[in-house]
Design a protein around this nucleic acid. Sequence first.
DNA 1: AAAGTAGATATACTAAAGTATAGTAATATT
DNA 2: AATATTACTATACTTTAGTATATCTACTTT
Lengths: 115, 115
Amino acid sequence: MKDLSEIKQCPRQFVLAINDTLNVLSGKWKLPIIASLLYGKKRYKEIQGNIENITPRMLSKELKELELNGVVIRKVYDTTPVRIEYSLTASGKDILKVLDAMVDWGVEHRKSAIA
Amino acid sequence: MKDLSEIKQCPRQFVLAINDTLNVLSGKWKLPIIASLLYGKKRYKEIQGNIENITPRMLSKELKELELNGVVIRKVYDTTPVRIEYSLTASGKDILKVLDAMVDWGVEHRKSAIA
DNA sequence: AAAGTAGATATACTAAAGTATAGTAATATT
DNA sequence: AATATTACTATACTTTAGTATATCTACTTT
């Protein structure tokens, strides 16, 4: 998703904020990657092993994007061979709050859908 | 997005709940539509007038999906000519809580991105 | 020296999401 | 009678997201 500017009657900064959040969460792989890193820093192959069926192309593409968006940190250790560790930024960890709100809504919504 | 089942180490029902929420929010038009209905029930043409550049195809497709997902109610008035009103279900209105969490995260994230 | 691992990139492709444009049925307005 | 409005649907197309498969460099292990 790129643009939510179609929403009117709502402060622009709020629209931008929601937009940012949705950009960080949407797509097939960003959330699994964030989830994997919520349990601590990981190396490329560890994340890959954690997430079933993700291709290396998708994993590096998404990690790059998450890094660019200030959600993930890529740390290169100057050893031989190089060791690369991915972790969440403070913001990245804070997404848990959003996920909590989403869990709450989703659970309640399922209840009311049955009723 | 269809499937987030790649996330491990997290209760399945939570994954499903997040999945549901993301399905209701992601895509280019669902949020603008929900936002438009947060200000009260509206007719098709009103929503269309509210949201710049949405095509009738997208609007009816998305409304149908939101209705199917228990977020929107479509009420047909038996007048001549028929009058159709769209509104949010209780669940639909509750999405505001998720949006609030998203606004909070987005705003904080922008702050820390600047710093 | 050959095979394997870490951390990717390149190229080509398919599938899903979204756009453009036209058209429909039923009624209302002039 | 002609035009406009509401609430859409149909068809074709483009764009974006995701998949499949092969390859690369630098190093380690056997």
